[in-house]
Design a protein around this nucleic acid. Structure first.
Length: 602
RNA sequence: GCCACUGUGGCUCAGGGGUAGAGCAAUUCACUCGUAAUGAAUAGGCCGUGAGUUCGAUUCUCACCAGUGGCUCCA
């Protein structure tokens, strides 16, 4: 248990190892850091410094660049502050005094924060030694309670997260209750980085990049292409089973299409435009597609649709192009060209919930099959009414769409978080989020409800009563874009893919050269059965040798010596197992067939 | 796009104002070996690209390109 000081000066006891306890602990660590920075750089202006997962950060406005040796000095100063065990005391001031107090200290960011607080609020401050900070608290009783921390990195961050504001310098740190937990965490981070798809994916020859091709344009090598091919066939077959019709639509279009859809006004920066966008009203200007929606709508528009025709489910393996800003590309996770398992469902209002549920079921089925189901979280992404430029439609349309969607989510009992400002420009989304090895969250799968675009495209169906109505549209993907999914799979399995996904399923190793003919025969039989098997070519010349980087990722290794050759058997070693089992080749094939067909995850 | 860092043979890295080094990988020869590295020899680099400073740049400066972690944005 630990005593914490609330902003009114009262003391509370909480479990120090609880989520709340750690939050307070980390927040106090951030104050210790801010105090250290102010000691070393009195001219630094304080912005904000919250606790985050595993640690904290604090933003400073300062001209000096925080270099690694400065960071070290800050760490040293922090240790001194901890050693001094300054009591941490809370006090409040009325608004005008609070502002005057911060003016005296020249903390203009704090004044801005105070001005945003409710009119009648008592403004709370925390004081430790010579350092005072505007803060809602709570905090630990004294600085000596901080025991284990490490400053991890410096980054730029816009004041209040707005790119129009000044960029501040942010120092990130991690902090734990004791040294042991800190060390364990740092080791865990190092281990996680070994799974980094960007490193492993290149080592395993899954993909590469080229300076002369450019940013965000990865080259999928044969192994990566094989995995994506397997995924793609799996998705297309599964969607067909679930009533999807496939389309294949153009990779580019005249601007006219995007003017109807709203992309031209709301997504132009994200598109690769061939020609001068400013001349699009007078001449033909083409653009590569960033989304598939309006193309599939054109397919819908080919004939009159009856209420009986709905739901109409269109699926497409769709390559998209998005002109991401240069600093945003990351391995296979964030790229400029990618291929997505895209789909749009046109349905009647009474079908929406059922169709939405089916989309989610398909997504969850994919996640379970890939072994990612346990790793995702669900986010209900709403619009931001204060940022109208980003969105089309009225308050009423958005509220309707969001209410409908929330009802569906609640009715289905999905455990989700809500996030404003994350919606698509045309409607709210259910985003299925996943974290990469650095803990950074990305959207893997998204299912969106769109009550607006059908109207813009004059998409209608003739209802029972003979009137024409706009269908509701669901935009969805079943396992996201293949590049990103592949990246997450590399990280999930550290490159050791389940047999059904592995680009190489079996490596056949002769012990000595004179067994290589037999081994080649084994390889041929496996290949004839459709398996991805290779002869260890090194052993054609010299004796058996295993190289971890490649071989330990392969699901099965078959070792063949004199004994196996005479008996017509193979010695099988499954990945992650030490024991070898001798069996007939047919038995092995049977075993592998079952594993691959059932998509067993090992 | 913004902030910070990085760019040396296929990979991991050292070096440093006088025109490059290690280990692994590769190639050749020898070794014929049962689950994480057999020995010897050889080859491989316009030190990311361009400009500037300098007698001289891979090393210093600037710009660009690319990579990494953040921010913003996003599948």
């Amino acid at each position: 248990m630990v005593q914490i000081t609330m902003s009114d000066g009262s003391i509370r006891e909480i479990e120090d190892n609880s989520e709340e306890g750690l939050k307070v602990y980390r927040h106090t660590t951030s104050h210790v850091m801010a105090q250290a920075v102010k000691r070393l750089f009195p001219e630094a202006k304080l912005a904000i410094g919250p606790a985050i997962e595993n640690g904290f950060y604090y933003d400073f406005d300062i001209d000096t660049t925080f270099t690694p040796d400065i960071i070290e000095k800050i760490e040293g100063e922090m240790k001194a502050i901890i050693k001094a065990k300054y009591p941490i005391e809370a006090f409040t001031l009325p608004r005008d005094e609070a502002v005057r107090f911060m003016e005296e200290k020249g903390e203009q960011y704090k004044i801005e924060l105070i001005n945003d607080l409710p009119e009648d609020a008592q403004i709370s401050f925390y004081k430790q030694g010579e350092f005072v900070d505007l803060c809602a608290g709570p905090h630990l009783p004294d600085t000596g309670r901080v025991r284990a921390f490490k400053l991890t990195q410096v980054a730029g961050a816009y004041w209040r997260g707005n790119e129009k504001n000044k960029m501040l310098q942010r120092i990130y740190g991690v902090s734990f209750l004791d040294k042991k937990a800190l060390t364990a965490y740092l080791e865990q981070v190092e281990e996680a980085k070994k799974r980094d798809h960007n490193k492993l994916g290149r080592e395993l020859e899954i993909f590469t990049t080229s300076d002369v091709i450019g940013q965000g344009l990865p080259i999928l090598l044969p192994k990566g292409t094989k995995i994506i091919q397997i995924l793609q066939r799996f998705v297309e077959d599964e969607e067909e089973k679930r009533g999807y019709l496939r389309t294949k639509t153009p990779l580019m279009t005249k601007s006219d299409l995007y003017k109807i859809s709203g992309h031209w006004d709301h997504y132009l920066d994200g598109m690769f435009v061939l020609g001068d966008p400013a001349k699009s009203d007078t001449e033909e200007v083409l653009a590569l597609r960033p989304m598939t929606c309006p193309f599939q709508y054109q397919a819908y528009l080919t004939k009159t649709r009856s209420y009986r025709d709905l739901p109409l489910r269109y699926g497409e393996t769709s390559t998209l192009f998005r002109n991401e800003a240069s600093g945003e590309m990351h391995g296979l996770i964030r790229v400029r060209q990618f291929t997505i398992s895209e789909g749009h469902l046109m349905c009647r209002p009474d079908q929406l919930e059922d169709e939405f549920a089916r989309c989610l079921d398909l997504a969850n089925f994919m996640l379970k099959t890939l072994g990612l189901y346990e790793d995702v979280s669900y986010r209900f992404s709403k619009w931001d009414p204060d940022n109208r430029e980003k969105y089309i439609g009225t308050d009423e349309q958005w509220n309707d769409a969001q209410d409908i969607m929330r009802n569906i989510l609640d009715h289905m009992g999905i455990n989700y978080t809500e996030q404003a400002g994350e919606a698509a420009f045309y409607g709210p989304k259910l985003d299925i989020q996943i974290k990469n090895v650095f803990g950074k969250e990305d959207t893997l799968i998204t299912i969106q409800v769109d009550l607006q675009l059908a109207k813009l495209f004059d998409m209608v169906y003739v209802d029972k009563d003979g009137t024409k109505k706009n269908p509701y549209i669901i935009h969805r993907t079943s396992l996201g874009c293949y590049e990103r999914t592949l990246a997450l799979l590399i990280e999930k399995y550290a490159g050791a893919f389940p047999a059904w996904l592995a680009p190489e399923q079996v490596r056949v190793l002769p012990i000595m050269e004179n067994q290589s003919d037999y081994c080649a025969e084994v390889v041929k039989k496996l290949k004839d059965k459709g398996f991805r098997a290779e002869l260890d070519d090194r052993n054609e010349k010299i004796g058996y040798r295993v190289r971890e980087a490649q071989v330990q990722k392969i699901p099965y290794m078959l070792v063949c010596g004199d004994r196996e050759m005479q008996e017509g058997t193979v010695s099988v070693r499954a990945r992650k197992e030490n024991a070898m089992k001798t069996m007939s080749l047919d038995e092995f094939i049977e075993m592998l067939t079952e594993e691959v067909d059932k998509k067993v995850i090992k």
